[in-house]
Nucleic acid binder design. Structure first.
Lengths: 195, 195
DNA sequence: TGACTTTTGGACCGGTCGGTCCTAAAGTGA
DNA sequence: TCACTTTAGGACCGACCGGTCCAAAAGTCA
């Protein structure tokens, strides 16, 4: 398949750039012009390589989930305590309050909010992504439970779903302009059910 | 001021219709055509009465906050228990999971998510709205604390901020496709800090 | 009735949207 | 070198976007 003129761009890199654009602007506000500029390719290349805006978005969400879960899993494995992993995750997000990074929130949550109900196909995609994040929390919880750092009174999957919902709430409140201090206070309360 | 041709539409009613459109579709996805159709007025009337899409949206958000907080305050006053008011609010939202109403989420949270970082003026508006909802929770908490139904170990404003964040998380998870059962389980955990 | 004020409908605007398509360029293998 | 395959650039598309503007309609008041 090396026949023909070779690609002048790295599809993986281009997709990474698309993720950034969608993450910062959202789906609808991101115009093809924005995307092409960030991805540094021509319109025809985009359509040939990714199919169209909608398809590019779906791939971007997938890529975002893949990357973020890889990062989280790496951090989870590098942390000897499941509980500390969770705490660090939450307080790490809380500390993005007031910063530029905080305003973007989570691409997956943003997608759920913006298009969750309007695009069934994408909704399923988003739901699957959420489950993957929940699964990471679940693993962390199970380790914490085994180590006695986290209560055994609540099943790990339920607790994981709860944490995911809390995380989304935290992100929304940061998007709405909460201070770092307030976000941290809220975090502390959110983590209580772990006890 | 009765001089001239009288309005053929009720501005208040029209604004109510605009709220519904923005609530269902979001700001960017709601076109002027959508709005005009729902509001049953002509483009020139819209511009004369509300200023433009952006201004109409701001007024719609304000109206949404006014209406919803009025409804909540009425329910709060009709409930003799501050704690039960909070529980009913949360489980009421949880039970919208899987329903059409659940997919729309909260207009204020949606606005924060969609435009919070891109429009400073609107962001301030949204933040103020959030504070109003927090204030309602705060009142309920104070009543609950006075009645001994809610712990005094956490200050009412902090607890209120926490509940608001949880509510937003709950809404996001419902938008992302959570089942009613899962939402209720999460609710129960979210309300634990009240103990 | 007639002067005046305001609203209404809709034509019209430039701009941008996502998407298509065709041609030239840039590679490959023989 | 030359036939072949694929990409890149960009002209072009119809549709729709939010917004402006103006003439006709519908009232009020004297």
């Amino acid at each position: 398949m090396t026949i023909g003129r070779p690609l002048e761009f790295d599809p993986d890199e281009a997709l990474g750039a698309a993720v950034q654009v969608f993450w910062s602007k959202g789906y609808q506000a991101a115009s093809l012009t924005d995307l092409l500029e960030a991805m540094t390719l021509s319109k025809s290349s985009l359509y040939q390589a990714f199919g169209g805006k909608r398809e590019l978005f779906e791939q971007s969400v997938g890529r975002y989930v893949d990357e973020l879960s890889a990062v989280m899993l790496a951090r989870l494995d590098a942390t000897d305590s499941g509980r500390r992993f969770i705490e660090e995750t939450f307080f790490g997000v809380a500390h993005t309050a007031g910063q530029a990074a905080g305003g973007r929130g989570c691409l997956l949550a943003n997608s759920a909010s913006e298009l969750g109900q309007r695009d069934p196909g994408l909704a399923a995609h988003v739901a699957r992504g959420m489950e993957r994040f929940a699964a990471i929390f679940c693993t962390a919880i199970e380790r914490g439970q085994a180590a006695g750092e986290i209560t055994n009174g609540i099943s790990a999957p339920v607790l994981a779903t709860y944490l995911l919902a809390c995380m989304n709430g935290l992100r929304t409140m940061i998007k709405a302009g909460a201070t770092c201090h307030a976000a941290c206070e809220v975090c502390a309360l959110m983590l209580r059910p772990l006890d």
